[in-house]
Design a binder for these strands. Structure first.
Lengths: 181, 181
DNA sequence: CTCGTATGAGACAACAACGTCTCACGGCGT
DNA sequence: ACGCCGTGAGACGTTGTTGTCTCATACGAG
């Protein structure tokens, strides 16, 4: 009976990613609850967005922890990270596309997140696994972009949900070009 | 004196990418014109979005033409395409992130555009330049995502504007992994 | 069973944004 | 110099959304 806040937030993220101007009423319908209940859980639209950001950051941090990104090879660590991110893709896609969040004061959590992400790629560069002619910062941004692209492609039916993880990891790691074996 | 429509649309795209809920007044300010003038050129918000979509599609088509994507190697064709896309990145980033456009009836032009994009990657796959364990459709979606990521990274000051072209092309082609020479 | 709690449905005023209008200003061509 | 657009500024009514409220209902715990 009691509303699952995170489930509501996921539904909101999915809807807002497609249509950022959705009204609270549309969000409530998408979440399968009434507008009154939505307002009981989130004071207003701003509070909803904020909760969305907090949840997304928490899930991203959790994915980084669960992937144990400091262990083993950087490539394998990255694969584990993408695997952990997969179920949270719609949520994270919203965060990375809604730059509105950064207009005011950027959420402090992003700094830490970016640092961990960049650190992973830097580790790969230092170990010789990753190329050094592109910046680790760009690698992190590219991963964000590919998560969004993957979530959209799945939503649009262009790729199978189960393939998303591999599609993102393989493209990010190896690119489009055919490797010479 | 007379307002440059495309310039207004570019400013609108840049603003709307960051904050999709921007009001017409904010858009007008961002474009450096009054709200009245904005309304004189675009009947309403819907018309503005539509014009944005039309312009973006036209620029994308023009980039495909200018890049002469059917000539030479697929890799070089892709590099030429990215080079042509660069100046239009903010506009295209808006289109690919605002999936609101697809809620109703998808703009017919997207079909043709997707077909050309996918065709380029398929050509590369058939010639042996591009890997075949990922789909050409995904390659196209990934490019869209990387354009958005690149535009954002430049806007955020994370990468230099002049580097964006190379960053996108190199990552898309070769990925993160260091190649064995 | 009974109570407490959470929800859905709907009404309500307040507010922000929209779309339209008018009027005055300024540059530009004739 | 004159007239002509195109623009900026602002006022206006209208619409849609928001946030809050009340009331009835349904579920679960004790």
């Amino acid at each position: 009976m009691t509303v699952d806040r995170s489930q509501v937030l996921r539904a909101a993220a999915t809807l807002l990613t497609r249509k950022a101007t959705s009204s609270m009423d549309e969000i409530a319908k998408a979440a399968g609850i009434s507008r009154a209940t939505l307002h009981r859980h989130f004071a207003g639209r701003d509070a909803l967005i904020k909760a969305l950001e907090d949840l997304g950051l928490a899930r991203f941090e959790a994915a980084l922890d669960a992937a144990d990104i400091d262990a083993g090879g950087a490539e394998e660590a990255l694969r584990r990270l993408v695997a952990q991110i997969r179920p949270e893709a719609p949520l994270l896609a919203f965060l990375t596309t809604e730059n509105q969040l950064f207009e005011g004061e950027m959420h402090q959590g992003w700094d830490r997140l970016d640092a961990r992400m960049t650190g992973l790629f830097q580790r790969g560069q230092e170990s010789g696994e990753f190329r050094v002619d592109l910046t680790a910062t760009w690698f992190a941004e590219a991963l964000y972009g590919l998560i969004g692209a993957g979530a959209w492609a799945v939503h649009a039916g262009r790729i199978a949900p189960n393939d998303m993880e591999q599609m993102i990891a393989e493209l990010l790691l190896g690119g489009v070009r055919r490797s010479m074996e």
